[in-house]
Simulated scan of single mutants.
Amino acid sequence: MTRPALPALVSGTLFGAGLALGGMTDPARVRGFLDLFGAWDPTLAFVMGGAVLVMAIVWRAVPRMQTPWLAEAFHLPTRADLTPRLIGGAALFGIGWGVAGLCPGPGIAALVIEPGAAAIFVAAMLAGMALVRLFEAKSA
């Protein structure tokens, strides 16, 4: 394994472990969070809040750094416009998340915990990604 791959492996493992410990690989927990007028489960709000807190601290620290620790330069977003593609993708992501109770990170992490159900989600996700590339290639 090359040196640049090690931080990615450690980060991915930590992310997956956090998702599993937070219960985000359980679709019932995610659907419980989205069920505002039924048996609402606030667990996901705490997981999201923890992520937002960490990101807020890092986002404030980045401008004070000359370069990142493990790269030659920062790769920060430069666009702030809302396009139909962005809005449509966000809507599709949200609908899929609500229906399946999984999003890409927890879906992949769930392959270890509950491979049968997660494999269906991951296969559908990969098929959707392939379809988008196919349609974008045809429209270009």
Rank of each mutant, 00 (worst) to 15 (best):
F93E: 05
L76A: 13
G50T: 07
I120Y: 10
A73N: 13
I95A: 05
P104H: 05
A8K: 04
I108W: 02
I120E: 08
G49Q: 08
R133P: 00
V99H: 00
H75Q: 14
A71H: 15
A45L: 14
L82F: 15
G38P: 05
L14G: 10
L34R: 03
T67Q: 06
F46Y: 13
L6C: 06
V30W: 12
G23N: 04
V62H: 02
G18K: 07
F37M: 03
G128K: 02
I87E: 03
T13E: 04
L131D: 02
L92A: 15
A117H: 09
G105D: 04
A123I: 14
C103Q: 10
V62F: 12
P104C: 04
A45Y: 03
A71G: 13
T25G: 05
P42I: 13
M55Y: 15
L19D: 08
A39V: 09
L102C: 01
E72H: 05
L19E: 11
R29M: 11
W69K: 12
A130L: 14
G12E: 01
A118H: 04
P104N: 02
V10C: 07
L76F: 06
G12F: 03
I108K: 00
E114S: 12
V47N: 01
G16A: 15
P84R: 12
L92P: 01
I120W: 10
G22T: 11
C103Y: 14
V132S: 06
V58F: 12
A80F: 14
V10H: 01
L19H: 09
